[in-house]
Design a protein around this nucleic acid. Structure first.
Length: 243
DNA sequence: CCGGTTGTTCAGCG
DNA sequence: GCGCTGAACAACCG
C-alpha cells in the first residue's frame, strides 16, 4: 500500500464520497469522532504518502505506514482505525496513523516536493539536493522533504534505471546524472502507478528483490544502506559508484 | 510456521 | 538541543 502512487489510487477510489456527508464516524484512532459526525467530506487530496481528507476548517491525515489498507463498502475481520458511514456506502481504514490537522494545508505542505503532484518541481528538488552534499543518494530518494512519495521500491528501481550506485554522495553525482535522478524519481513513480493499476508491478521490478542483473547477468547485492538502513538492491557492475 | 518488510514516530541516551 | 539507536506499531507473503 504505502508508496506515493498507491495513494493516488486510494484517492481515486474515494472520490465518489467527495462532497458527501458522514452519517457516522467511528474507529480506534484517538481523535474526536464528534468533529466528523454530520460533516461533509469536502475534498480528498494527497501529499506523497499522506492521504488528506479535507473538512471545513480541518483535515484528517492518514498515513498507511507499512501495512495500512482501506476497504470501501466492505470490511475485514479487525477493528478499523477509522470508519466513515455515508448515506450510501462506507469506508474503513486499517492499520494506519490518523491525525487531525488544524493548520491550513498550504502552511505545512510543500506541494512541489510531491513527485505525484502537478506542482512537482524538479528545480526545487535540485536546490534541496545541493544543500546536502554528504547525503547518500539512497537516503536522498527516501527523504520525504525532497522526494515526497518515493519509497524503498521506487528508490531501488530509480537507482538501477539510471545506473547509479546507492552509496554515491550527492556531491559526487555528475550534474547530468543528477538531472536523471530527479527526472526518474518522477517518471518511475508514474510507471509504478500504471503497473500497480494493472496488477503487474512486481513483474516489472528490475532490481528490487532480484538476484541477477538483467543487463549483465551479475549478482544483485542486497545490503541495508544509508541512515535509514533500508533494504537496497544494486548491481556493482552496471551501477556506477562515483567517489 | 516463522521471518521479513512498500514506514514513521518517539523515547532515551550521550 | 543535537544526532543516533532501538522500540513500537502490526499484517501479509513466501
Amino acid at each position: 500500500m504505502p508508496e506515493g502512487p498507491s495513494l493516488i489510487i486510494a484517492r481515486e477510489a474515494l472520490m465518489p464520497f467527495k462532497g458527501k456527508k458522514i452519517v457516522h464516524a467511528s474507529g480506534s484512532a484517538k481523535i474526536d469522532h464528534d468533529r466528523l459526525n454530520k460533516t461533509k467530506l469536502l475534498d480528498i487530496r494527497t501529499w506523497g504518502k499522506h492521504l488528506l481528507l479535507c473538512f471545513d476548517g480541518f483535515t484528517i491525515r492518514i498515513h498507511f505506514l507499512m501495512f495500512g489498507t482501506y476497504y470501501i463498502n466492505s470490511e475485514k475481520d479487525s477493528v478499523p482505525k477509522l470508519a466513515f458511514e455515508f448515506a450510501k456506502g462506507y469506508v474503513n481504514f486499517y492499520t494506519c496513523a490518523v491525525r487531525l490537522i488544524e493548520e491550513p494545508l498550504d502552511d505545512i505542505y510543500d506541494w512541489s516536493a510531491d513527485v505525484m503532484s502537478d506542482q512537482w518541481d524538479p528545480k526545487n528538488a535540485r536546490k534541496k539536493l545541493k544543500d546536502h552534499p554528504d547525503m547518500l543518494v539512497t537516503d536522498a530518494l527516501l527523504d520525504q522533504d525532497i522526494f515526497s512519495g518515493v519509497g524503498n521500491i521506487i528508490k531501488n528501481e530509480v537507482l538501477y534505471r539510471i545506473k547509479l550506485h546507492p552509496k554515491t554522495r550527492l556531491a559526487d553525482v555528475p550534474a547530468r546524472k543528477l538531472t536523471e535522478l530527479i527526472r526518474e524519481a518522477h517518471d518511475y513513480a508514474f510507471d509504478f502507478l500504471n503497473w500497480k493499476k494493472e496488477n503487474t508491478l512486481r513483474q516489472h521490478w528490475l532490481a528490487h528483490t532480484k538476484k541477477i542483473c538483467s543487463r549483465d547477468g551479475d549478482h544483485i547485492h542486497k545490503e541495508y544502506l544509508g541512515k535509514t538502513k533500508r533494504r537496497t538492491f544494486f548491481c556493482n557492475t552496471c551501477q556506477e559508484y562515483y567517489h
